[in-house]
Write a protein that binds this DNA or RNA. Structure first.
Length: 816
RNA sequence: GCCAGGGUGGCAGAGCGGUCAAUGCGGUCGCCUCAAAAGCGACUUCUCAUCACCGAGAGCGCGGGUUCGAAUCCCGUCCCUGGCGCCA
C-alpha cells in the first residue's frame, strides 16, 4: 500500500472539489465544531497540535456524516510576542516570519487530512481582522467598559520594556538572568470584565463543559459574600471601611492594617510626629514585589501610624498599622484579629494585644497565652448577644446585625480583576487612541479604522512603535493640533476573544460580521482546546460574547455550548516534550514514516483523549500494522454473505462506536473497530457491511478509507456519506455467549493436552449447539485435528464414553 | 495552605456496585520457513492443585467501613500530577 500516494491524491481531490466548504442553509441543521486556533510558530506543527486538531476533525467529520451542516474553520492567532522575539533574534520582520510560518502550517495541516473550510481562514495579523479589535475597543470605550488607570507592571531595565508575567522567571528577566524585574506604575488600559462577573459565574451552570473546567472558572471569578465594616478614625470624623468575610470575629479585632500604597496612609499621618517615619517606611514596603509580599516564608512587617480607630460594635480603640501583608484589594484596609494566622503573628511581633472569641467548646481562652491563632470553627464567647452560638451559624446573623445598626454593609466580592490589555510591544493590535494636550484622550473615529501597524520600525530597544515618527506624531481628530498616538498594543487575547464569530463572515469589510450569518453558525456547538486556557481565553471570550450581545449583535449568551479539554501528550519518557530533553516528536516525521492515517489513529489510541499520556512509538507501529491489514483485506475484497454472527457484531459496533465518538472515547472506539475487523477476516462480508466498516473508520483514517471506498466501486466521497445506523434487531447477545463457550472449550482442550499426549481431539456437543462448533476453526486454534459430534450421533467415535459428560454450553472432550 | 484529577498485571491504559480485570505493547511456546522477518494460533497478576476437562485461594497504593456482593460507594491515611495563591 502506497500511503503517500493515496494521501496526496485525496488531499488534492478534497481541495479541488471544495467538499468541505459550507453555506448557511435552511434545510440542514448547523453544527459548529472549533479547535482553538494555533499560534503559527516557525517550528511548525508540534504533536500537541496534531492531537487537538485531529480530535476536532474527527468530530467534524462525524457530525458531517450524521447529516449536519458543519462549520469547521481554521485560522491563525498570528499576532503576539514570539513572532516579535523571533524577529529580533533572526533579524527578520514579524510580518515575514508570520507569513512563512503560516504557509508552513497550512502545508502540514493539509497533510494531516483535516477537513477545514479553507475559504474562511482568517489571521489576526491582517488589518482587516484587527480593525474589528479596534472597533470593539471603541465600543467598549463608548459604554464605559474600557478605561485607563495606573497599574503596576513588570519592567526590565535592560530591555526597556514591560514584561508579561510569563517572561518573569524567579523575579528576573527571561533575557537577562542578572536583572531583577522591577514593578513600575504605568497608565494602562483596562477592560471592565468585572461588570460581567456575576453573569460569567451564573452562565457556567448551563454549559456542557467538564466539571473541573467549570470549577476552575468559578474559583477564578471567586465570588465571596462579606461585610464592609466602618471604623471611625479616632479624633476625626473620617471613616475607614474594612472588608471582611469573617464578621463573626469582629469582637476579636485588636488592630487595623492598611496597605502601604494606599493614599489613606498619607492622610492619616499628615502633620503628626509620625509622618516622616511612616511615609518612608510605607514607601519602602510598597516597593517590595508582590511576590515577596505574598510569600508565606517572608516575614510580615509594618509600622504603627500613631492613629487609632474605633470598633463600631464595642467602641474599643484599636491601633492602625501600615503592613506589607495588606494589599490594595477592596479598600486596602483590613481588620485584624486573633483568628487569623498572619494577624496573630504580626500582633505578636509588634506586641499588640490579642483576644480570642471562638473556642472549641465556647469556654473562654486567653489569646495572649496561646502560641498561635485559633483558626478552626467553634463556639463564640465574649461576643455580646452572639456568645454561645456556633460561629458559622452566627456569621450571617452578625452581618444582618451590623447592617441594621448601620455600622457596615453586606457586600459581594469577586476575585476576578479587570483585564489589563496594554502591552508595550509592536506585534499586536494598536489601541485606537490619540492623546491631545487640549482634548485629552481622543478615540480614533470609526471611519478611520484600522489603525495599521507601520512596517518601518526599529526593534531592539523599548516599544518599536515609538521609533516610527509618522505613526506617533499625528493631528488630534478633534482640534487638529499636534497630538500623540497611543503606542501600546492590545493583549493578543483580545483577538481570540471573538475570532470564532468572524469565521461566520470572514471577508466582510463593512461590518465585524453579518448578524444573520453569525447567529446562524454561532454559538460553537463543540469547542476543543487545552486545559491551559480555562482561566484565560475561555473567560475572555465569554466576556466578549456577552458584550457583543449587549450591543445587539448576537442572540445568544455563551460562545461555546460544549467544551472538551484534551490531555497533554508527553514524551516517551513521560516528561513534557522539550528540545532540551530531546524527547520531541515531530508529526511530519511520523507522517513520512507511517502516514497521516496511522498517526491520527495512534494519537487517539494512547489513552482517553482527555487524559495526559506518554508517547510510545510502538502504539504507532501497532496501528500501522492494523491499517495495513485493513487495506489488504479490502483491496482484495469480494462481496459475499455476512454471517449472522458478524452482522450482530457489526450492528453492535455501530451503536457503541457512535456513542464513543460522541463522547470523545476514541481509544475505546478504536478497540471496537479492531474487534469488528478481526471478525471479518475469517469469512465473507457483503457490500453494506464493508461500507459500514469503512464509514466508521473514516473519521479516524480519512485517506485510506476514501481510497478503499472508491475501489469498492462507490462514487466519491466517503467524507460525505451517511453515518451508518444500527439495527437493534440484528444484535444478538447469544453470539457473545457462543464465542465465550468456544473459547472455554479451546482452553479445556489445551489444558488436557498439557496432561496427556494426543493428536486427535473429539468434541461432543448437544445437538442444538452443533452449529456453534466448527471443527476446522477449533482445529486451527488448538493446532490439532479436531472432530465434532452431536451426542445423539449414533456414528460418533467415543471409546471411553466421554460424551456422557456434556452439559449445555459445555462440550465433552476426548483426546486420543 | 486550598481546589481538581489520579494511584489497576512487566509497561501503557480500560473498567467505576453484580459472572471471569478490556485492549495494545512486551514476553513465552507452537505453526509456517532451509533460516529469519512478516503472518497465524495458544499462553502470560500471584500462590496452590491436577497425567482428563465445568479446579481452589488471594489480588486493583495502604488501613478501616457500608453491602448478599466493591477495583468500583463511604471514612481515614500515604504518595503522584496539574491549577490557584497571605483576597482578610
Amino acid at each position: 500500500m502506497d500511503f503517500k500516494k493515496i494521501e496526496r491524491k485525496w488531499q488534492k481531490r478534497w481541495e479541488e472539489e471544495k467538499i468541505f466548504e459550507v453555506k448557511e442553509s435552511a434545510k440542514k441543521k448547523k453544527f459548529y465544531v472549533l479547535d482553538m486556533f494555533p499560534y503559527p510558530s516557525g517550528a511548525g506543527l508540534h504533536i500537541g497540535h496534531a492531537f487537538v486538531f485531529s480530535l476536532g476533525d474527527i468530530f467534524a467529520r462525524f457530525k458531517r456524516m450524521q447529516g449536519h451542516n458543519v462549520l469547521y474553520p481554521i485560522g491563525y492567532d498570528s499576532l503576539g510576542l514570539p513572532a516579535e522575539n523571533a524577529a529580533i533574534e533572526a533579524g527578520t520582520h514579524p510580518e515575514e516570519y508570520t507569513k512563512k510560518s503560516i504557509a508552513n502550517f497550512m502545508k502540514q495541516q493539509k497533510a494531516m487530512g483535516w477537513s477545514y473550510d479553507w475559504s474562511r481562514a482568517v489571521k489576526t495579523s491582517n488589518p482587516e481582522f484587527y480593525r474589528w479589535d479596534q472597533w470593539i475597543f471603541l465600543k467598549m470605550l463608548e459604554k464605559g467598559l474600557a478605561y485607563r488607570k495606573k497599574a503596576p507592571v513588570n519592567w526590565c531595565r535592560k530591555c526597556d520594556t514591560v514584561l508579561a508575567n510569563e517572561q518573569v522567571i524567579d523575579g528576573k528577566c527571561w533575557r537577562h538572568e542578572d536583572t531583577e524585574v522591577e514593578i513600575k506604575n504605568l497608565e494602562q488600559w483596562f477592560l471592565k470584565i468585572t461588570d460581567y462577573a456575576e453573569e460569567l459565574l451564573e452562565g457556567l451552570d448551563k454549559l456542557d463543559w467538564p466539571d473541573n473546567a467549570k470549577k476552575r472558572q468559578r474559583n477564578w471569578i471567586g465570588k465571596s459574600y462579606g461585610t464592609d465594616i466602618y471604623f471611625e478614625i479616632d479624633g476625626s470624623d473620617k471613616v475607614l471601611p474594612t472588608y471582611t468575610t469573617r464578621c463573626d470575629t469582629i469582637f476579636s479585632v485588636t488592630f487595623l492594617a492598611i496597605a502601604p500604597e494606599s493614599p489613606l496612609v498619607n492622610e492619616l499621618v499628615e502633620g503628626t510626629d509620625w509622618e516622616k517615619d511612616v511615609k518612608e517606611f510605607a514607601q519602602k514596603l510598597a516597593k517590595e514585589s508582590l511576590a515577596d509580599r505574598i510569600n508565606e516564608e517572608k516575614e510580615k512587617v509594618g509600622i504603627f501610624t500613631g492613629r487609632y480607630a474605633v470598633n463600631p460594635v464595642n467602641g474599643e480603640r484599636v491601633p492602625i498599622y501600615v503592613a506589607n501583608f495588606a494589599l490594595t484589594y477592596g479598600s486596602g484596609v483590613v481588620m485584624c484579629d486573633a483568628h487569623d494566622k498572619r494577624d496573630f503573628r504580626f500582633a505578636r511581633k509588634y506586641d499588640i494585644p490579642l483576644k480570642f472569641v471562638i473556642s472549641k467548646d465556647g469556654k473562654e481562652i486567653d489569646a495572649n497565652r496561646e502560641d498561635d491563632a485559633f483558626v478552626d470553627d467553634g463556639i463564640l464567647f465574649n461576643s455580646g448577644e452572639f456568645s454561645g452560638m456556633k460561629n458559622r451559624e452566627a456569621l450571617p446573623k452578625m452581618a444582618d446585625w451590623i447592617e441594621k445598626k448601620k455600622w457596615g454593609k453586606k457586600t459581594v466580592n469577586y476575585k476576578l480583576r479587570d483585564w489589563l490589555i496594554s502591552r508595550q510591544r509592536y506585534w499586536g493590535t494598536p489601541i485606537p487612541i490619540i492623546y491631545c494636550d487640549k482634548c485629552g484622550v481622543v478615540p480614533i473615529p470609526e471611519k478611520d479604522l484600522p489603525v495599521k501597524l507601520p512596517k518601518d520600525v526599529k526593534f531592539g530597544k523599548g516599544n518599536p512603535l515609538k521609533t516610527n515618527d509618522k505613526f506617533v506624531h499625528v493631528k488630534c481628530p478633534k482640534c487638529k493640533s499636534d497630538a500623540r498616538r497611543e503606542t501600546d498594543t492590545m493583549d493578543t487575547f483580545a483577538n481570540s476573544s471573538w475570532y470564532f464569530l468572524r469565521y461566520a463572515d470572514p471577508r466582510n469589510d463593512k461590518k465585524i460580521f453579518d448578524e444573520k450569518k453569525a447567529n446562524y453558525w454561532a454559538p460553537i456547538d463543540q469547542y476543543i482546546g487545552g486545559p491551559e486556557h480555562i482561566t484565560g481565553h475561555l473567560i475572555y471570550f465569554r466576556f466578549y460574547t456577552k458584550f457583543l450581545r449587549d450591543l445587539g449583535l448576537l442572540k445568544f449568551d455563551e460562545p461555546a455550548l460544549r467544551y472538551f479539554t484534551q490531555g497533554i501528550v508527553h514524551g516517551a519518557d513521560g516528561e513534557k516534550m522539550s528540545k532540551s530533553r530531546g524527547n520531541v516528536i515531530e508529526p511530519l516525521e511520523m507522517i513520512k514514516k507511517f502516514g497521516a492515517d496511522t498517526l491520527r489513529l495512534a494519537l487517539v489510541s494512547f489513552a482517553g483523549p482527555d487524559k495526559d499520556s506518554s508517547w510510545d512509538e510502538k502504539i504507532v507501529v501497532g496501528n500501522h500494522k492494523f491499517l495495513k491489514k485493513v487495506y489488504e483485506y479490502f483491496d482484495g475484497w469480494k462481496p459475499g454473505k455476512t454471517e449472522a454472527i458478524v452482522e450482530s457484531k457489526l450492528n453492535k459496533t455501530v451503536k457503541e462506536v457512535t456513542d464513543y465518538i460522541q463522547n470523545f472515547k476514541h481509544n475505546l472506539a478504536a478497540i471496537k473497530l479492531r474487534n469488528l475487523f478481526n471478525s471479518f477476516v475469517d469469512g465473507a462480508i457483503d457490500k453494506k457491511s464493508a461500507e459500514t466498516f469503512l464509514k466508521l473508520l473514516h473519521v479516524y483514517c480519512p485517506f485510506v478509507t476514501e481510497e478503499l471506498w472508491e475501489k469498492m466501486g462507490n462514487k466519491p466521497f466517503v467524507s460525505l456519506a451517511d453515518w451508518p445506523k444500527f439495527d437493534g434487531k440484528k444484535i444478538n447477545e447469544k453470539f457473545d455467549k457462543i464465542d465465550a463457550a468456544v473459547d472455554k472449550t479451546i482452553s479445556d482442550v489445551l489444558n488436557i493436552l498439557k496432561i496427556v499426549n494426543g493428536e486427535k481431539i473429539y468434541v461432543y456437543v448437544l445437538p442444538n449447539e452443533l452449529e456453534n462448533y466448527d471443527a476446522e476453526v477449533l482445529g486451527k486454534r488448538v493446532g490439532k485435528e479436531v472432530r465434532v459430534f452431536a451426542v445423539n450421533d449414533a456414528k460418533k467415535y467415543d471409546p471411553l464414553g466421554k460424551s456422557a459428560k456434556v452439559k449445555p454450553g459445555r462440550p465433552a472432550i476426548y483426546v486420543e
